[in-house]
Simulated assay, not measured.
Amino acid sequence: MTSGEGSPPGAAWQARLRESGHRLTPQRELVLAAVETLGHATPDEVYAEVRTHSSAINLSTVYRTLELLDELGLIHHAHLSDRAPTYHATSGHEHSHLVCRGCRRVISVERTDMESALGPLAARHGFSPDYGHLTVFGTCADCAGG
């Protein structure tokens, strides 16, 4: 897959792969495009999306590719449940997640909002949070009855 619908935007990700000594493969492009398309997705969801474009990729390739793309900073993973990690692209805004334990709703929170909320606490402890990996579990207003 090259540029076009479903393709990852820009060529920066291609350069990052090459600079790190990795080859640009159709499988890697398909996995990155699937993450971009799906927004937040588990490896199984990415696999299902990739399979709509190619039957020549298996689940273990998807897992290895997700790990590589995460390692290179092209995608991030977060733990939005007690199951498999959820992956999302880094090409948009960096954000944290609020996850409702009742309805499983995921709310994306801008980095600046999380920095405002956690910045003083982190500074007091000399700590630098990874905001793109941060997930806070709780109860949304709908489930709380408010």
Rank of each mutant, 00 (worst) to 15 (best):
V106K: 08
G132R: 04
S55W: 03
A84F: 00
P129F: 10
M1N: 08
A78M: 06
T61F: 01
A123S: 15
T42I: 02
V99L: 09
G4P: 15
R16V: 13
E67I: 07
A33R: 06
T112V: 13
N58R: 07
A56L: 09
A56Q: 10
S116G: 15
V35Y: 04
Q14M: 14
L118W: 11
C143A: 03
L30T: 01
Y87V: 00
G4T: 15
E45G: 01
V99C: 12
Y87M: 00
A12D: 14
A89I: 04
T25I: 02
H77R: 13
S128P: 01
I75Q: 10
S96P: 12
L74C: 12
Q27N: 06
V50K: 00
A84S: 11
G10Y: 10
H40T: 02
P43N: 03
V106R: 11
C103N: 09
D82N: 11
D82E: 11
E71F: 13
M114Q: 08
A123M: 08
H133K: 11
L38P: 09
G102H: 09
E110G: 01
R64A: 11
E45Q: 12
Q27E: 11
R28C: 03
R16F: 06
C100V: 05
G6F: 10
R28H: 02
L66D: 09
P8H: 11
T90Y: 13
G39T: 06
G92D: 15
H97G: 02
T90L: 14
C143I: 06
E29I: 03
S55C: 00
E115I: 10
P120E: 04
Q27H: 07
C103T: 09
V50M: 02
P120H: 04
R111T: 15
A141D: 12
R18G: 05
V62H: 00
T112M: 05
L17D: 06
H97R: 14
T112K: 12
E45M: 04
H125Y: 12
L38I: 04
A78T: 06
T61Q: 13
A48D: 10
V62P: 02
P129D: 08
T90R: 15
L118G: 12
L68R: 01
H88N: 09
R101I: 09
T65N: 08
R64H: 12
C100I: 03
T139W: 04
E71C: 02
D113I: 12
R51F: 00
A56P: 00
A41S: 10
R23L: 08
E115D: 10
V99H: 11
H133R: 14
D142Y: 02
S108D: 14
P85S: 00
A12Y: 09
H97F: 14
V62E: 01
V106W: 07
E29T: 08
G102W: 01
E67F: 06
L80A: 14
A12R: 09
G6N: 12
G126Q: 05
P120T: 03
R111P: 02
